[in-house]
């Protein structure tokens, strides 16, 4: 564990709490892409098939939290606050993402086993899981401030992981090219959002696309 990785994980936790706060406070999931949340649930379930493999208490508790919270968010969006979800705004075709990621995982992986291919699939899928949300944002052209805080925390978590990998490469000679490539792409997807968040939200304005 190092500073960057711990901070990244805490930002990831924070992003989920901000999302839950947004839904509970406004009693609405408007502006949130169900498809992105569905993809995150798929990411956690396929990645943490090794849940019973012991690494540390921290690792196990975080995995349980990520699986449970992602499924709870699906419940909130699909059942509890179903009336506030507008599918006509959430039109990104996730079938292509799922298919492409599965294909890539079958071709580019460390070991061709069931668990390992699904782990690789989850890494690729996480990299692009935010696309339906960003697509929805670009369609509506604006977002509630709390929703942008959620996206910022999520993007910061990815950016900090890049620093963690640089740190681990120099201190442990840790190499994990699948995670590096996917993580770099994932962070790059946030660059436009970061720019507008910095220009508008941090200066007290509403998040609006130019």
């Amino acid at each position: 564990m190092n500073f960057f990785r711990l901070t990244a994980d805490l930002m990831h936790l924070l992003s989920i709490f901000v999302l839950l706060l947004k839904i509970q406070k406004t009693r609405s999931c408007s502006g949130i892409s169900f498809k992105t949340q569905l993809l995150y649930a798929v990411v956690f379930v396929t990645r943490y098939l090794d849940l019973l493999k012991w690494i540390s208490l921290y690792n196990t508790l975080m995995k349980i939290f990520f699986i449970a919270s992602s499924i709870y968010i699906l419940y909130l969006m699909k059942i509890k606050f179903r009336a506030t979800y507008d599918p006509s705004q959430d039109t990104f075709r996730i079938e292509f993402l799922l298919g492409a990621c599965l294909l890539l995982a079958l071709v580019f992986n460390y070991t061709f086993t069931f668990i390992e291919v699904l782990w690789t699939f989850s890494i690729y899928l996480e990299a692009v899981a935010i696309l339906p949300q960003l697509f929805m944002l670009s369609r509506t052209g604006e977002a509630e401030t709390i929703t942008t805080h959620y996206l910022f925390a999520l993007g910061a978590y990815r950016g900090l992981y890049l620093l963690n990998w640089i740190w681990r490469f120099y201190t442990e000679h840790h190499i994990d090219w699948i995670v590096w490539v996917a993580g770099a792409i994932q962070t790059a997807l946030y660059s436009d959002f970061f720019y507008i968040y910095y220009k508008k939200v941090l200066h007290g304005q509403k998040f609006e696309l130019p």
Partner: peptide, 10 residues
């Protein structure tokens, strides 16, 4: 050095 196959990151 640690193997990437251990997947110790979240």
């Amino acid at each position: 050095s640690s193997s990437p196959k251990t997947h110790d990151e979240l």
